[in-house]
Design a protein around this nucleic acid. Structure first.
Lengths: 217, 217
DNA sequence: TGCAAGTTTGCAGTGGCTGCATCTTTGTTC
DNA sequence: GAACAAAGATGCAGCCACTGCAAACTTGCA
């Protein structure tokens, strides 16, 4: 699925093990529920020792919510490449493209993941707003773009709100079993946010399902 | 602090114990950090057995993030009383008033709580978006107001976004040590959201710290 | 006063998670 | 290809969060 080229056997095996653990965890928890699955069982299914599980994931939950590390670095890098004149919302939306593509590219895995995560609110909270360090980095990157002082509330608000938008889009995507494209749902959400979340009754857009779709380019 | 009237000795004692546990937990964790404090120590400080701790809180974290149960019910009830013509954002903002007042009324406790919560991202995520049941209820209440079908994304998006706004406002409030009023910060955040999070440079409001303050009435 | 219901507590047990020591695997260098 | 060093896997012992159960103990009420 992901690009393994240019890696020695060692790193390839690490990736495999990690993926096997995550897949096993998702499958088992989807079948039985979070509390009915032990780390021992997950490890067994991936054919490693329980101790090894914790060499890959700090907690049982981590194996379920996925990478989040690499993803975020990619988002940060993407954000850095967007020209500074682009407004914050648009910039973030386009920085998310990479992650979105990856999710839709691995739809089966991600639909399973979302199914699991949605059944366990603790996980749902961690899915997007899990990492504080990267969120902080995001806020700083935005502050630099917009020329805000970092303690002005604006960048933090934008990051939090777009995180919320991403989360709801993903939930909606998963709820529909992936029938509507994630890109579309995310654009719809960002559009609504950019429009100030207008009350649909006062805005009254006949025939439009979206309360104001915001085009990215 | 809270109103104890009309309760027998039994319920009064329960409230006391609960408050003592929460206070002890906050104090100890603020001093030493989450992992350096055991449930046993918290219970000891509140002069009950460790087993009793778990009669009051399902997890150690719960003792730190606070009630959340009663608060949410109150928000729901408040939302129900807001006339249906009021736009969604405004309705939610005003439904939050009760909680806000309580937070500012118990500022010392809440500043300590925020200090602790901000040092432990896991807790921060749970602070606002913790409970899935009530969040769901909120979405349904909103859907009923706006006449949306509940699976249309709009209500969920609004709830998620306003949650994010509330969270950032509280973080900002706590970061400033409560120097700016929470009401003011929340209004500022809601105003920015209602304005579509305008990029400050394009909006350009000379002299205004807020990127567009939205008046609630 | 006596009873029923609600609370506290101890105890035993499961399972998440960690540090440490040991063994195995992999990449490298000659 | 053999020796060696770095990195990874594993077992083990141990801490602690959390749960179910059964036995005290308190409280509210008749």
């Amino acid at each position: 699925m992901t690009i393994d080229e240019g890696l020695g056997r060692r790193d390839r095996k690490k990736r495999q093990t990690r993926a096997a653990l995550a897949a096993a965890a998702l499958r088992l928890v989807a079948e039985r529920g979070l509390d009915q699955v032990t780390v021992e069982e997950i490890s067994e299914a991936a054919d490693v020792s329980a101790r090894t599980f914790f060499n890959y994931f700090a907690t049982k939950d981590d194996a379920l919510v996925g990478d989040t590390e690499g993803d975020r670095e990619r988002v940060l890098r993407a954000l850095a490449t967007v020209p500074a004149q682009v407004p914050a919302l648009t910039a973030i939306r386009s920085a998310l493209s990479g992650v979105i593509d990856e999710v839709e590219g691995d739809a089966a895995l991600w639909l399973l993941r979302m199914q699991v995560v949605m059944q366990h609110p603790v996980l749902l909270a961690r899915l997007v707003s899990g990492n504080a360090a990267t969120e902080q980095a995001m806020v700083e990157a935005l502050a630099a773009r917009t020329g805000h002082s970092p303690d002005d509330g604006y960048p933090a608000l934008v990051v939090a709100v777009t995180g919320a938008a991403l989360r709801t889009a993903m939930v909606r995507w998963a709820t529909g079993g992936g029938s509507r494209s994630l890109v579309e749902l995310l654009d719809e959400a960002f559009g609504a946010v950019a429009a100030g979340l207008p009350d649909p009754r006062t805005t009254d857009q006949p025939g439009a399902t979206a309360p104001g779709v915001h085009r990215t380019r």
